[in-house]
Design a protein around this nucleic acid. Structure first.
Lengths: 164, 164
DNA sequence: TCCTAATTGCGATTTTATCTCAAATGCATA
DNA sequence: TATGCATTTGAGATAAAATCGCAATTAGGA
């Protein structure tokens, strides 16, 4: 039965899940990734759980959450618009941008004049009234780069200072 | 001096809280805003509650949450990196950007080739390894613009200061 | 100062995310 | 193809974050 697994056009990035020993590709993880790829919006973990549970009855909610975390660290999946478990706030002042660490979720302000006058969203955003914008750079902060024990690639992160 | 905020006394945007009847400026709201302005990071609602409770013992957690919501809608405060109460995910594909409605938190993808080759964060981001970036346009979606025409409670909705 | 609408505080409730640990599974190796 | 072992899964409890309803209080215009 696994011989026809590729029939579904192997979801991009799946192979990245197993760079070496340590990140097994389970049916649950595959199902979560396929469920995510099948949507065109930005589903929450719970929405994905609903989707996956339809194909894999009995799957645990925790498994979906864990699968997403693993895949985020492997770079296969990305968090959209998120900063840890809680919403964060700021007072809008002069234009600034954000550096976001994909490993520890830290958000740091960045002032970069070269980015302060970008073109607008264009006609594709008809009906959307733009009030402001900012650029988000996703990457790995210096601290995480250090605490990550020489990763074989750019994946396989470790949770060392994940708390709050 | 008035063009740019940074003062502890007159917190920028506070006057925007009372565009007309309907958004009273309470001591609690002022305290929340001042607590937020006093920080240089991006605190959570709970962190702000801790800060405010030091000056206003007895203030309710719910009040802090509500004050933040009101101020977000008034444009005095902004949510950083947030999409409703839950984290959202996506499979990273070709470069795209996001339109984010500050009223309903909807996130819509936007493809805009003019934004696909922006300059990097520069030297200010020393030590930060950039993996990807995207532009977030904050504003009001068409749906919310319609339903906010003559709001029963929040009158004018917000003041525009786009070129800030 | 008076009056009215809006806000506050409190506690309960909902939503979202994480944890523990025995049992099951993936996968490298032979 | 079978075997061994580290890793993952499932289930429910638990923690964390956010919201809700209502009576008492307060802000702000007249």
């Amino acid at each position: 039965m696994k011989s026809h697994a590729g029939r579904r056009a192997a979801v991009a990035g799946l192979e990245g899940l197993c760079p070496r020993r340590g990140l097994p590709l389970t049916v649950q993880r595959r199902a979560v990734l396929e469920a995510l790829a099948a949507r065109r919006d930005h589903p929450t973990a719970d929405q994905l759980y609903e989707d996956v549970a339809r194909r894999l009855p009995g799957i645990s909610r925790a498994t979906v959450y864990r699968a997403l975390e693993v895949m985020v660290r492997a770079g296969v999946v990305r968090k959209v618009w998120y900063a840890g478990a809680a919403t964060r706030f700021e007072v809008p002042e002069r234009r600034h941008h954000h550096l976001v660490c994909v490993l520890c979720d830290a958000v740091v302000d960045l002032h970069q004049p070269a980015l302060d006058r970008l073109p607008g969203p264009g006609r594709a955003a008809r009906g959307f009234r733009v009030l402001d914008y900012s650029v988000q750079f996703m990457g790995v902060c210096a601290q995480c780069a250090r605490s990550t024990k020489t990763p074989p690639r750019q994946s396989s992160g470790r949770q060392s200072h994940e708390g709050k």
